[in-house]
Amino acid sequence: MFELLAVTYQACSASLAKLGEPEAAWIAADRAISAAERAGNPLMMAAGAFRLGFVFLGARHFDQVEETARTAAEALWFLTDQGNVEAMSLWGGLTLQRAVAASRLNQADVAYEHLSRAREMAARVGEGRNDYNTEFGPANVALHEVAVAVEVGDAGHALRIGTAVDASTLSAERRARLAVDLARAHAQRRQVDEAVARLLEAENVTPEQIRNHRVVRQLVSDLVSMQDPASSELRELAERVGA
């Protein structure tokens, strides 16, 4: 019963986060962890912490991302050491969250260290799994490496990794996020047309997500300011996202 309740709360947290309701998503994730604890299921507890990490990332509480993900990952280490693949996937997903949080705190060395450890674990897990909705594997690590590189201003590295990765096995949401991060990398190099092409690619994959995304709106505004006059594609995109 409590395991089912934990899964339900996790799903609610994910949906609420996408709807822009961080406080409600936070409560749902916290209740998912409590339900998993009552069920005595360490994997479900870690999955709840993984979901909570996304809420904290969205709310820009990066220190809380680190604390939550680190604690949950440490609790999983015994199971990962035994070769439990589900635990390995969760550990990897939590470690990627730590990498993103570090990059947003401008701690590049720390972020890349987390990525290195996640990459080693991903090689053991392999592709084609989606344990607890982590989508953890080599391709997902590469996506996060692109995101980290963009955050720390290393556009060249982001573009090298991002253009080489095969993200076809990942969800539409993750593929769109990769395209947005590559657009951000092109914008850092003031390559406006290339950035617009990537944003249109992302919009084609998940139009609702792109048209209501705060980061995309700001990025498009920046691109408009870079290009004078703005291309028709860029002007139309700006209108669609409200930039």
Score class of each variant (00 low, 15 high):
6 A>K: 00
12 C>T: 13
14 A>G: 13
17 A>M: 06
18 K>H: 10
19 L>E: 14
25 A>F: 02
27 I>L: 06
27 I>E: 02
28 A>W: 05
29 A>R: 04
29 A>Y: 03
30 D>L: 15
31 R>C: 08
31 R>M: 12
36 A>T: 11
41 N>L: 09
42 P>L: 06
43 L>W: 04
46 A>V: 10
50 F>I: 06
60 R>Q: 12
60 R>A: 10
64 Q>V: 03
67 E>Q: 08
69 A>R: 03
69 A>H: 06
71 T>I: 05
76 L>F: 09
82 Q>T: 02
84 N>G: 03
87 A>R: 01
92 G>A: 11
94 L>T: 04
95 T>P: 01
96 L>H: 05
99 A>F: 05
100 V>C: 01
102 A>D: 04
106 N>K: 13
107 Q>E: 13
110 V>W: 03
112 Y>A: 11
113 E>G: 10
114 H>T: 01
114 H>A: 01
115 L>H: 05
116 S>H: 13
117 R>M: 01
120 E>D: 08
120 E>N: 07
120 E>H: 07
124 R>S: 14
126 G>I: 05
127 E>S: 10
131 D>Q: 14
132 Y>C: 03
132 Y>P: 00
132 Y>Q: 00
134 T>L: 02
137 G>W: 11
138 P>E: 01
139 A>R: 00
139 A>P: 00
141 V>N: 01
144 H>K: 05
147 A>N: 00
151 E>V: 11
158 A>L: 09
159 L>H: 02
161 I>M: 01
165 V>M: 13
168 S>K: 10
171 S>H: 13
172 A>L: 11
173 E>Q: 13
176 A>R: 11
176 A>W: 10
178 L>R: 06
179 A>I: 07
180 V>Q: 09
182 L>S: 10
183 A>F: 06
183 A>S: 10
184 R>V: 11
185 A>K: 04
187 A>W: 11
191 Q>F: 13
191 Q>P: 07
192 V>L: 05
192 V>N: 02
192 V>G: 03
192 V>E: 02
192 V>I: 00
198 R>G: 03
200 L>V: 12
202 A>H: 10
202 A>E: 07
205 V>C: 15
206 T>Y: 15
206 T>S: 15
210 I>A: 04
211 R>L: 12
211 R>P: 00
212 N>W: 08
219 L>H: 09
221 S>K: 15
224 V>R: 15
226 M>A: 01
228 D>I: 14
228 D>A: 06
230 A>R: 05
232 S>L: 15
241 V>Q: 08
242 G>F: 10
242 G>M: 14
243 A>P: 04
